[in-house]
Design a protein around this nucleic acid. Structure first.
Lengths: 150, 150
DNA sequence: GGTGAAAATTTCAACAA
DNA sequence: TTGTTGAAATTTTCACC
């Protein structure tokens, strides 16, 4: 299962865009019999290439009207500081992504809130209250011309 | 469908994490009969709250071993420059996300490549070759302690 | 919102290339 | 090993209560 052949790649392409099409439909699109298609999908799931399935929800319907990326710098690079920060972040529902990055700052967050007031609240009460955090740079998302992960 | 009740929110929570569970399983988890559950899901799909379904793939299995966020600044804020940049980006498979942001720079990209050499190639041959681009700041992702969109 | 039955799909064992 | 067939088990779907 080390390297994927063309059919399996085609299956992954289909499922990454249409995660809930029937196996019959999938088999038809990739040009396999339903059982051959199913066997490949099951193997891809079993081996972990397919990690799961997600419904993609409309942010607006979920009450999300404000998205920002935030660069966060810590006062020191100690493991304790990082762990404390990550622990605080893990409990914050507004933080959808937290990436540990190289460069002049330590973290890049993606934050999703209802609106600007709730973002301000998060910014001051949550981020601003963390003693490890020494710099915060907000990049408010005005639009996403491309977002394959949405 | 203006505001969602508790059951529908529960359905959305389940489907956003387990997008392919059977309707029987879903109905059981949220405490509805299969037909009531199905009716709600269909309505959520029809109204656009559920925009679709996706299989979540393992990046490593897909040959992705290098992820970075890139802040991009343009030389001018003209519509022509933005359109030219976005057009170039839309054709770059390495760019998974492109966000138009507020602040000192215009764009924040998420780029996924096989490895550092292929990233360097993208960085110089693609981004560096765009005449509109005047600043590039890479934030290489070393890890993602939290990533609800993965 | 629930029930029940028809239609469609998933799943798998046996077999073929 | 990978693909196919066919039939049983399961699920989806919908008219009706």
């Amino acid at each position: 299962m080390s390297t994927l052949d063309a059919k399996s790649e085609q299956i992954l392409r289909e499922l990454s865009r249409h995660g809930r099409i029937s196996n019959l439909e999938l088999a038809d699109r990739v040009g396999l019999s339903p059982s051959a298609s199913l066997r490949r999908v099951q193997e891809l799931e079993r081996s972990g290439v397919i990690k799961g399935y997600r419904a993609v929800l409309d942010p607006a319907a979920m009450g999300i009207g404000f998205v920002a990326y935030i660069g966060v710098g810590l006062g020191d690079h100690s493991k304790a500081s990082q762990e404390a920060f990550e622990r605080a972040i893990s409990g914050a529902p507004e933080v959808v992504e937290c990436h540990n990055i190289t460069g002049t700052i330590e973290y890049m967050l993606r934050v999703e809130c209802a609106d600007l007031p709730s973002y301000k609240r998060f910014h001051t009460d949550m981020l601003g209250a963390l003693p490890q955090v020494t710099s915060i740079t907000s990049y408010v998302v005005m639009g996403s011309p491309k977002d394959a992960r949405a």
